[in-house]
């Protein structure tokens, strides 16, 4: 079992192509009024096209910080984060983000307008934006709510809109920051299945941050495990090498308790 995962960058898979996203030795530091905190320490990994990469760790392990740096909201103080070979310097619609908060939709726009808006701001012609919004709203099964305002939707529906908005933009990578953590268990399970289906239909690349082992094991095609203080990558697991999702979850649990022992 130990050979089924390895720390650090993924091994070459035979075909030499540039990874979609490269994180190389990225250290991310943020400063408060009182202290300088190293949130992520020398993280390195690649994301290939079409992957569902899960970044798993306890709260405070720097996984959300890492996502914000890939999103362009934070700059690494050391190392490089590059999308298609180009270092990331600012937020942009090629890395659409789905946040956990239900207030990520613009309350003054309807579901359809919310999905269309980033496209319209970024030069997609109105007719095409409309058609694409229509497709993705249908894919997340919200056609009947298309002209509703966000406050008329449930938490799960809002999350679906955010996913539709992210995917309709056809980003190079979709970043998801614990998107389902605030939802009830039944809704979460449904949205997890939906996400896998949507990702498989569209072939999108997804980086998904979570603190839930079961979620990581259920959704990922690759799982990165992080440990806190400072945030470090401890393992990088290729899901296809595991016999079953249960097997994967058990391995992840093992890694996490090893990490905790070292910390204690």
């Amino acid at each position: 079992m130990a050979g089924a995962f390895h720390a650090g960058t993924s091994e070459p898979q035979g075909i030499v192509t540039q990874p979609l996203l490269q994180v190389q030795g990225a250290t991310i530091v943020y400063e408060t009024d009182l202290a300088r905190v190293v949130a992520v320490w020398r993280a390195s990994f690649d994301v290939q096209r079409g992957e569902r990469l899960m970044v798993l760790g306890r709260s405070g392990c720097g996984k959300s910080t890492l996502l914000k740096a890939i999103g362009g909201y934070l700059k690494p103080s050391e190392g490089v984060i590059a999308l298609e070979g180009v270092p990331i310097t600012a937020p942009g619609p090629d890395r659409m983000v789905v946040w956990q908060d239900t207030d990520q939709l613009l309350p003054w726009k309807t579901v359809r307008q919310n999905v269309m808006y980033p496209m319209l701001l970024n030069g997609v012609p109105r007719a095409e934006a409309h058609a694409r919004a229509q497709d993705f709203i249908a894919m997340v099964d919200l056609e009947r709510a298309a002209d509703h305002y966000p406050h008329q939707l449930s938490g799960g529906m809002k999350m679906r809109v955010a996913v539709a908005r992210g995917l309709a933009m056809r980003p190079a990578i979709l970043l998801m920051d614990e998107p389902f953590a605030a939802l009830d268990a039944l809704t979460r399970g449904r949205l997890q299945d939906e996400l896998v289906r949507l990702q498989e239909e569209t072939g999108a690349t997804v980086l998904f941050v979570t603190h839930d082992i079961a979620e990581a094991a259920r959704l990922g095609t690759r799982v990165i495990v992080m440990s806190p203080h400072p945030g470090q990558i401890k393992a990088n697991l290729d899901v296809s090498r595991f016999a079953s999702r249960e097997d994967l979850a058990a391995t992840i649990s093992g890694i996490i308790s090893d990490v905790d022992e070292v910390a204690a």
């Binding site: 999103g71 600012a90 937020p91 890395r95 983000v97 207030d103 808006y117 980033p118 701001l121």
Partner: peptide
């Protein structure tokens, strides 16, 4: 909210 600001910047605003 910080989230709404992040969303706006995500769109390139």
């Amino acid at each position: 909210s910080q989230t709404l600001r992040f969303v706006g910047r995500n769109f390139g605003l």
